[in-house]
Design a protein around this nucleic acid. Structure first.
Lengths: 355, 355
DNA sequence: TCGATTGGCGCAAACGATTGGGCAGATGCG
DNA sequence: CGCATCTGCCCAATCGTTTGCGCCAATCGA
């Protein structure tokens, strides 16, 4: 354990903390020697000094509670061991989980992450990105890409900052995503097998590839089975509870026979839909089937356990970080797609087979 | 919009990005002049140059897409405009919401935040804290304090880094919390008024003031009403769905008549309890009342809307940041306590009055 | 005994931005 | 017209760390 900071040491910084010079002076060596002794990454041709000296320096550093000023080090080395992460919102459990995967993998590899919310807002994205660049991040993970992203990404490319998209893809840029199209098909197959013929989709934001691909996969599977979706039953929505509630309302207000099943491209939206159904008297899970997406941990614990398409969120974040690190090492970056799977529960299974 | 980075400018940095010298050279002035022209904080006695020069410099900076290297600036000024935030986990919606409040207020005041998960683990706390200090944060918000925290906090005090606790308090250290004791009483009064006499508590982690205070308030109110808690019906648990599920199991396994109501000091734990109740055949919200804490946005949308004690999470984070900023300005730091309120819903109201 | 080799460290120049001090030229006043 | 004052800008030092280069002393071989 590093001892208390003493106030009578030589070469303290303005805040009274020991610097490299403090350690060097105490050890009777030159700061450069101390730097080498304390540098963990003793790469290739660097000569590091005698084991004796190194040991002494390390011990003294420990004693006085020295910790390297990362700003100074970053200034000198042009590398910060810092990766920037942009997400729509950390209060979205899906993104928070992905971020945990990113951060865990980053720390594992000696990097730290700097995360910022963009609220899916263009101006905020620009300003948060500028902030990350000003902090000299070594690379960036974008969790809030739009399907037709250009400006932001071109900026990154122009500055030669390695980057990777996660969760949402955009054009041909390197990304790590779940196979959302396949996931949409899984949901459709499940509902079709249960006998549903008229189903609605709560489709998510129109700029996010996640919602688009899931919806497309779902629609394709339905059409191939000979039961194409009614276009008016596919309604966009924000990826949250309130969004799902409104979308479900809109679905129920649509003329024609009500759907017997609803696919929400996001679990929170699905929960919102459950809320709407409940207040209209229809019993979700008995009169109408509901299936969500992502299989957040809550889904299985709800009073009505929610069927969902599971996507490996944590793993997706970790994989994105691995890809980014590879890119920073100058390797080729090739996108990866992870496989979704189905978690069938009572919110669909409990529905008696419709006509 | 900042233009593309050109490659033929003078004094670019190693990564090809324009530096202050680039702008200065282009404007035909000395870097120091450029620095002053671009420094937003034109405090007191600083002479800033003619409006003419300043305008020209600003325009050129914009044109070449200059952005100040915050590491270099921080090194020189000894201030980083960076506040560190330590939380147990960002995937805990409660903490994520508090963090958003912190971050929003920070940016509002020209600061950025650097957040890290500690998983409520002692070793991880130490290492994440060291990391924040190495990054020279100007202050720290601790969202994962323990009731008897010592080592960590003493370290901060020794280094003269301003800090504030949020959500959880510890001893007399400056903190911003919800009045958890009062919140516990609110929950108790609600259940008592509904006629419950034998109730159980899912009490949270034993090192967190939140769970402790809420439980204490609840227990005191029950005792004062002449219906003291049965000690074996007060069980600790992690603040998550799985924790609530297990705790509820334990409660149901306790000998003696089953409780007619359950108070969970956390909404997720409450949801876990709902899950357990469901699988035992008891119908929560009709046979047994459940009330949670925090009133997360999900609570009202659940298939069985969950009663909860609402705490102003976002506001709590913002207030903590305000307090920290005051502390950084050398002002006295006095703890603040925000008021909780009751949100009564079907999970308690739907229960027919017990004997 | 002497030159060649090598290991261990010190020297000093960066990295990019900031800021107190100071120097010229313009302006004001009598 | 002389002197004081002010305005606008530049100089140079500084923050803490890293690293290529080169010096010195010890070791080795002949």
């Amino acid at each position: 354990m590093s001892g208390a900071v003493r106030d009578d040491l030589p070469h303290l910084d303005k805040a009274g903390r020991p610097t490299l010079a403090t350690v060097a002076t105490l050890a009777g060596v030159h700061p450069s020697t101390a730097s080498r002794a304390l540098s963990s990454s003793l790469k290739g041709g660097v000569r590091v000094g005698s084991a004796d000296t190194v040991g002494r320096i390390r011990r003294i550093a420990e004693e006085v509670g020295f910790s390297r000023n990362l700003h100074a080090a970053g200034l000198r080395t042009q590398r910060t061991s810092l990766a920037g992460v942009l997400v729509p919102r950390l209060t979205d459990l899906v993104l928070a989980t992905i971020y945990e995967g990113i951060d865990e993998e980053a720390r594992h590899r000696g990097y730290q992450t700097f995360v910022a919310n963009t609220n899916d807002d263009e101006a905020e994205r620009a300003s948060k990105l500028a902030m990350l660049l000003a902090r000299q991040v070594d690379g960036i993970v974008l969790g809030d890409a739009r399907i037709d992203d250009d400006e932001i990404i071109e900026q990154l490319q122009a500055r030669h900052v390695p980057f990777v998209l996660v969760s949402r893809r955009s054009q041909r840029h390197p990304s790590v995503t779940c196979d959302d199209y396949a996931g949409g098909r899984l949901a459709a197959q499940h509902l079709l097998e249960l006998g549903h013929r008229r189903v609605a989709v709560i489709a998510g934001e129109e700029y996010a590839s996640t919602g688009l691909d899931r919806t497309r996969g779902f629609a394709d599977a339905c059409r191939e089975a000979g039961h194409p979706l009614a276009p008016e039953l596919v309604v966009p929505s924000p990826f949250d509870v309130a969004g799902g509630r409104h979308a479900c309302q809109q679905i129920l207000n649509t003329p024609g026979p009500p759907p017997t099943g609803i696919f929400a491209v996001n679990d929170f939206a699905a929960i919102g839909a459950l809320g709407t159904l409940r207040s209209t008297g229809a019993t979700a899970g008995r009169d109408i089937a509901v299936i969500g997406y992502n299989d957040i941990s809550l889904a299985s614990e709800l009073p009505l356990p929610l069927s969902s398409v599971r996507s490996p969120l944590h793993e997706m974040g970790a994989e994105a970080m691995r890809l980014l690190l590879a890119g920073m090492d100058g390797e080729e970056m090739t996108s990866r797609t992870l496989r979704p799977s189905l978690a069938a529960r009572e919110s669909t299974l409990g529905v008696s087979t419709p006509v």
